[in-house]
């Protein structure tokens, strides 16, 4: 029994030792395997599938362009958003590029690129009731459906209003449409794509912004891919590629100038 225990201890020590010697260059690692694996979720208009089943969107197209610039293939793979840090550190993906809000939590868990797009947390209300709420204080007393752990949840809680946490941003819209919550708070870019005339939620509308925030791309902590991406972003903004891709998906107004 003692032998077994010491063996286990030795194995554990070996593991921590190998953990200390991380790869020198993440860029070299990705170029070595010839493929950049990008973790995404189905999130229009950043990453979504076209009729042919291929991943497109502002983030998807930018990721492909970035891959081409460092000479590797790009594989977009759908992940469970809750496991994004696990996926990165487990090297099953190389970056998270999916309209990710740069919060303090995100920045402490991974190394992030420069912000490339503006976003805000916006309030969703039934279209017929939106006019009755003139400003944010008027919203007190309503119950807000929010995505658990999201930036939106943090904003509503900061205001001291009642929240109902659900598992996805889309679920919050369901809540409002079904009348089980009075209002919801989601990403502005998502709201633009999913709410209002011509969408699945024609009866909903989005009103106030509770804050403003920015999107960035996340890499493994200490990864030199961050510098490579920042350089790429600057170059593609300078030559107009980034703006052109943004226009394809109607998000040109949100783009942050890169230098």
């Amino acid at each position: 029994m003692k032998k077994l225990l010491s063996l286990l201890l030795a194995a554990a020590m070996l593991l921590t030792l190998t953990a200390a010697f991380a790869e020198d260059s993440d860029l070299a690692y990705v170029q070595g395997k010839g493929k950049l694996v990008v973790g995404i979720t189905d999130f229009a208009p950043m990453d979504y599938k076209n009729e042919a089943g291929e991943w497109i969107g502002f983030d998807a197209d930018m990721a492909k362009a970035f891959g081409a610039s460092i000479g590797v293939e790009v594989e977009l793979i759908e992940i469970d958003w809750d496991n994004k840090v696990l996926e990165l550190n487990g090297k099953t993906i190389d970056c998270v590029w999916n309209g990710m809000t740069l919060t303090d939590e995100v920045k402490s868990a991974m190394s992030c690129s420069n912000a490339y797009a503006n976003n805000a947390q916006v309030v969703i209300l039934p279209a017929d009731k939106a006019a009755s709420y003139a400003d944010v204080p008027a919203l007190s007393g309503l119950t807000f459906a929010v995505e658990a752990g999201s930036a939106g949840e943090a904003e509503v809680k900061a205001l001291g209003y009642a929240t109902t946490a659900v598992s996805t941003q889309a679920d919050t819209l369901m809540e409002v449409a079904a009348g089980t919550s009075d209002a919801a708070v989601i990403d502005a870019l998502m709201a633009a794509a999913m709410v209002g005339e011509g969408t699945g939620y024609a009866g909903l509308t989005y009103t106030f912004s509770l804050n403003s925030e920015e999107y960035g791309v996340g890499f493994r902590t200490g990864s030199d891919l961050v510098d490579a991406l920042n350089a790429f972003l600057a170059a593609s903004y300078a030559d107009g590629t980034m703006q052109a891709i943004a226009e394809t998906y109607g998000v040109q107004a949100a783009i942050i100038p890169q230098a």
């Binding site: 979720t41 189905d42 999130f43 229009a44 979504y48 599938k49 793979i77 759908e78 992940i79 469970d80 496991n83 996926e87 996805t168 941003q169 889309a170 679920d171 819209l173 369901m174 449409a177 998502m190 999913m194 969408t199 699945g200 939620y201």
Partner: peptide, 23 residues
């Protein structure tokens, strides 16, 4: 849980929003 896209994942994707169908 490891993002294997079996049938429940497929079903739930339309709740989150996928291929133009959401909610």
């Amino acid at each position: 849980i490891i993002a294997l896209q079996e049938i429940i994942w497929a079903g739930q994707s339309f709740l989150k929003g996928s291929q133009g169908i959401s909610g």
